[in-house]
Design a protein around this nucleic acid. Structure first.
Lengths: 223, 223
DNA sequence: CGAGAAAATAATGTATACATTAATAAATTT
DNA sequence: AAATTTATTAATGTATACATTATTTTCTCG
């Protein structure tokens, strides 16, 4: 009845450009004209253009009329905006997740991420820790029932991704963060929404502060 | 240096389609193939397509491969999602607006909307009242400093617009709502962020309840 | 040599063309 | 007449063409 459409060129270009941006193969602030992008990707301008419109809507790029795509850099102010929203929304997702008593296995993704985080902390692998942290937050999103909310948060994660990856090496709170995650997870699995919300909120408020002061104290004004 | 580009066909088509959707000249649930839309608007498919991608990103339409554009209907569940987010975010905007003591004239738009709302209440003109209410909330948005937040809220307003327009005739709380707006406005102009936030939150929680119960009690399951 | 004008280049916005494939209609068989 | 197959139609995804206009380069003249 509903056939799963095989991936279209637009989807491919979109996915690849998104990854190129998140992984800084396309550098923040740099500009590339459409035809060059099309050439690189081996397709015509049409699918590139359509993918770019989506990426622009998601706040990763900007289309400047005669200068092509501009990879949007993320400033400290941008991060302030992003965290302002995350502080307001993510705790609600956590509360939701705690509220409707899920089946045990809904939490496995969360548990897995938690385990990875604790292992990375042991091993002192900051990069792995950052990834586990990301996993945890995304797994929580997956438990949210408010699609609009989780999807929006997801675009904010994307926007903040580069800055997070750079700053994780400079922060020294991974131990504390890990403990906080553990507590949040317990509140969720135990079905205590108010506690989950409160814990998550203070966690986000604290980490926002850490991240922003790193961004401002170092020369990393824009990433 | 930076020339303001004259409106492009994509922009025109986008703006017109958006209005057609909000004003129900394109009916929720209906489907229109791209070529027909292009014909109607007197342009080729290219700009129509690009406009549609934007509208899809904003949650007003859905592109279904062989069936063209589908105007997304809004269900009670959708409204629950939308209000869940508005309850979390709009009070923050109100608090922000109250916080950074603006120049007197920043509030004129808010005052104007307030006056219109009170006048409409007097005259018993529910349609005018609904518009003034909309003006008030949009004027508040304009005062927000978090662009990502206000822009997102704005897309939610769009999504909720039709449902609001229909239900306003059925609700009987315009007097109370008007009073609440007045109080909120006072808290903002007086520079009391915490009060503004609290008042706004309870206002939104209450109106969400009113609206949702109307949607569920009537047959208006989807608009 | 520098400033301004003219020419060349290149990117964009949009239209059009076209192959592919899904949806619909027509036709055939039983 | 129902079911199945075949033919027709139409929508999509993508490439290409092209006019317009911004940018860059080249040229000219003081």
């Amino acid at each position: 009845m509903v056939a799963k459409q095989r991936s279209t060129r637009v989807d491919d270009v979109y996915a690849q450009l998104r990854r190129d941006i998140l992984d800084t193969r396309l550098l923040p602030g740099s500009q590339v004209p459409e035809p060059e992008l099309a050439l690189r990707m081996g397709v015509s301008r049409t699918p590139v253009r359509e993918a770019l419109i989506k990426l622009q809507a998601e706040g990763l790029i900007e289309l400047i009329p005669r200068h092509g795509v501009r990879i949007l850099p993320v400033s400290a102010d941008d991060m302030r905006e992003i965290y302002g929203i995350l502080i307001a929304l993510e705790p609600e997702v956590a509360a939701e997740a705690a509220q409707r008593q899920q089946s045990e296995q809904s939490f496995t993704a969360l548990e897995t991420a938690m385990a990875k985080m604790e292992a990375a902390l042991e091993g002192g692998d900051l990069r792995a820790w950052a990834n586990a942290d990301d996993d945890f937050h995304r797994a929580l999103l997956a438990l949210g029932e408010n699609r609009r909310m989780t999807q929006f948060i997801s675009t904010l994660f994307d926007q903040a991704h580069r800055a997070r990856m750079v700053t994780v090496r400079l922060r020294s709170d991974s131990k504390r963060s890990t403990q906080e995650h553990r507590k949040i997870l317990r509140a969720i699995t135990a079905g205590r929404p108010d506690e989950a919300r409160a814990l998550f909120r203070s966690h986000r408020e604290r980490t926002a502060g850490v991240l922003l002061s790193i961004l401002e104290e170092t020369q990393l004004r824009s990433l």
